[in-house]
Amino acid sequence: MARVWDVPVQDSTRVRDARVAAEGAAALAGLDERRTAAVALVATELATNLLKHAGGGLLLVDVVPPPGRPAAAEEAGVVQIAAVDHGPGIADVPAALRDGFSTTHSLGAGLGTCRRVADDFDLYSVPGRGTVALARVGSARPAPALAHEDVPDAPTARAGGVVVPFAGADFSGDAWAWARSGDRLTLMLADGLGHGPEAARASAAAVRELHRSAHLPPPELLRRMHGELSGTRGAAVALAQLETGAARLRFAGVGNIGARLRDGDGWRALLSRPGIVGVHRPATLAETLLPWSADRVLILHSDGLPSRWVPPADPALLTADPAVVAAVTVRDASSSARPVRDDTAVAVLAPNPPERP
């Protein structure tokens, strides 16, 4: 059951709250003093930028699996900080990432500092619509080890997501995770019934079973989860399993988890079966089999998103970090006039971007 920090940044007093949240996440991830200081710096800079350049926004702090490598169950993960706003946007993103650039006569070290300090950093901005800045900080990278035959190849896909707890709660009933077994990469999104700690316990049980049974195809994995979640409130669960060798995506779900797959220039909805994992499982669990290619993107989401949300269309966004895609999806589906009315989670599976020369 993972803690989630949701920090609205509307005035200067919340900058300290952002730093405290980042330090709490660093403790949960087991980061040392030096990396904790890096996390605190990034949170402070991103929160300050929200005030200076966007008139405020939202900071989401979480401990997540690495985007390019599914974490093992025993791994603590990395601290992820997403700054989300509906501000004026950034006209020249490359310039904004250079140290010394400023539109407010400040030192202009904010975004450049974040990119330099973080292990991963990405920024997506559209003038007139707002900005999402995302940073991840993990433990210090170990020295490169000698290659061994039993070390698996790097995954050909990456995953990322964001979670927004309902009403600023400490825990969200929604959770996402991904795991690897051989050439199978499985992305899961679970929505525990209701809100609060009991809902979070149900989704956490689904995460544990995913790590234990990632070698199984989605229908069988859902059956295992049904037994694991028995005695909890239960959860809606969707599983998307990429078989990298066969370039095939397998999908199965129970409950009201939404799924959209980018197919050519459009989006295709993938359907789950009615039911609640751990409480009422359908008698049959059919799966959908689809080809997977370098132009595919999959978005899973809980019912915290409005039913008529619109998938992203900007090709530049679809090649961004998957967690940025998730954060933009949440931002653009809600507003002050349409506030989030439930725990909300979005998880994205995308091919690795081509290597830059």
Rank of each mutant, 00 (worst) to 15 (best):
D6W: 15
D6V: 07
V9L: 11
T13R: 15
A18V: 09
R19F: 11
A25H: 14
A26N: 13
A27H: 15
L31N: 15
E33T: 14
R34C: 08
R35Q: 13
A37P: 07
V39G: 07
V42Q: 07
A47H: 04
T48H: 09
G55I: 01
G55R: 03
G56T: 06
P65E: 06
A72G: 11
V84G: 05
G100I: 00
S106E: 10
G108Q: 07
L111R: 10
G112K: 09
A118E: 02
D119Y: 01
F121C: 10
F121G: 10
S125H: 04
A135F: 03
V137L: 12
G138K: 07
A143Q: 15
P144Q: 09
A145Y: 00
L146T: 08
L146N: 13
H148M: 13
F166H: 13
A167K: 12
W176F: 15
L185A: 09
D191W: 09
G194R: 12
A202S: 12
A205Y: 07
L210Y: 14
L210N: 07
L216T: 04
L222C: 10
L222H: 12
E228S: 07
G231F: 07
T232V: 06
R233N: 02
G253D: 04
G253F: 00
R260W: 10
L261P: 02
D263H: 13
L271M: 12
S272F: 01
G275C: 11
I276E: 03
L289H: 14
W292I: 09
V297K: 15
L298K: 15
S302E: 04
D303W: 03
S307A: 15
V310F: 10
P312M: 11
P312L: 11
A316S: 15
T319C: 04
D321Q: 12
P322A: 06
V324S: 11
V330N: 00
V340P: 03
V346G: 02
P351A: 03
N352G: 01
N352F: 00
